[in-house]
C-alpha cells in the first residue's frame, strides 16, 4: 500500500453552520487505515457535528470531506456508497423498537446490500456472538438493558461490514455498571484493526485504544497528539483546563 491509499478519511477545512451559529470552523485532519482516533472536548464544541458530517447526517457547507476516496457531495449514490462503508453508533442507541434484535441487524444488509435472508441472519448471529448476546436475538429492544441495546447497535453497524466505525458518545447514556461491557466490545474491535473515530470522555478507554487524541473546542480542533503526550503534557491551555476538569473525578 502506498501512503495515499492508506488515507481513508480526509477532512479539509470543513465548516458547518446552523443558521447564524457556526458549529465547525475549518476543521482539517486525515485518518489512515486502521487508525483509532478519540475525540474529546466540552459539550457543544462540535464533536457530534463533525462525525455526523462524515457520513452526511449533516451536510457541511464549506471545505471538503473525502471518505474512502469518494468526496461527499449532493450526489445521492455517493452518499449511499459512503454510508455502507461507514458504521455509526449513537449515544441514544436508536434501535428500531418495532423490530426484533435479529431484524434490526438484518434490515440493512438485506435492503441496501441485497443480501438474502439466510445469509443476513448468519452474519447477524455471528456479530451478536461477538458482542456476547446471541441469546437475545429474538427479543425486542425494549426488553434489553441499556448496555445490551448499545451492543446490539454496534452489531447492527458491523453487519454492514463497514471499513470505518464512528462512535458518538456511545456510553454516556448508560448506567455506570454497563459502561464496561460496551467498552470491552469496542476495545476488541480496535484490536482487530478497525478504523475508528470515537467521541468519548472515557479517558481510560482513550489511553488503552487511541493512537491519536483530538481535542475540540468552539468548533475548532485545538490539539492533536498521541495519548502519551496528550495526557502528560498538553500544549494548549484549554486542553489542560478540560483535562483537569474531566480527570478530577
Amino acid at each position: 500500500m502506498t501512503d495515499t491509499d492508506k488515507r481513508v478519511i480526509r477532512l479539509d477545512n470543513v465548516s458547518k453552520s446552523f443558521g447564524n451559529f457556526q458549529a465547525l470552523k475549518g476543521v482539517s485532519f486525515d485518518i489512515n487505515h486502521g487508525q483509532k482516533v478519540v475525540v474529546c472536548g466540552p459539550s457543544g464544541s462540535g464533536k457530534s457535528t463533525m462525525i455526523r458530517c462524515i457520513n452526511r447526517l449533516e451536510e457541511h457547507d464549506g471545505g471538503s470531506i473525502t471518505v474512502n476516496g469518494v468526496e461527499l457531495t449532493d450526489d445521492m449514490a455517493n452518499i449511499l456508497a459512503v454510508r455502507r462503508e461507514v458504521g455509526m453508533v449513537f449515544q441514544q442507541f436508536n434501535l428500531f423498537p418495532h423490530l426484533t434484535v435479529l431484524d434490526n441487524l438484518t434490515l440493512g444488509p438485506m435492503r441496501s446490500r441485497g443480501a438474502d435472508k439466510q445469509q443476513a441472519q448468519g452474519t447477524a448471529m455471528e456479530y451478536l456472538e461477538r458482542v456476547r448476546i446471541p441469546d437475545q436475538a429474538n427479543k425486542y429492544p425494549s426488553q434489553l438493558s441499556g448496555g445490551q441495546q448499545q451492543r446490539v447497535a454496534i452489531a447492527r453497524s458491523l453487519c454492514m461490514k463497514p471499513k470505518i466505525m464512528l462512535f458518538d458518545e456511545p456510553t454516556s447514556a448508560l448506567d455506570p455498571e454497563m459502561i464496561k461491557e460496551v467498552l470491552d466490545v469496542m476495545i476488541e474491535l480496535a484490536e482487530e484493526g478497525m478504523t475508528m473515530i470515537v467521541v468519548t470522555h472515557e479517558m481510560g478507554f482513550a489511553k488503552t485504544v487511541a493512537d491519536t487524541m483530538i481535542f475540540m473546542d468552539h468548533g475548532e480542533i485545538v490539539e492533536v497528539a498521541p495519548p502519551s503526550e496528550f495526557f502528560s503534557s498538553p500544549r494548549s491551555e484549554r486542553t489542560q483546563l478540560f483535562l483537569s476538569q474531566i480527570l478530577s473525578h
Binding site: L57, L80, G87, F90, N94, F96, L107, R111, A153, M160
Partner: peptide, 26 residues
C-alpha cells in the same frame, strides 16, 4: 424520533426504505 431516521440512513438504507421499514411501521 429523529434518531430512527438517522440510524436508518446510517446503515445505508435509502430514504424510501427508511420510510417503509423504519418510520411507517412505527
Amino acid at each position: 424520533p429523529r434518531g430512527q431516521w438517522e440510524a436508518g440512513r446510517a446503515i445505508g438504507l435509502s430514504r424510501i426504505d427508511v420510510m417503509r421499514y423504519v418510520i411507517l411501521p412505527q
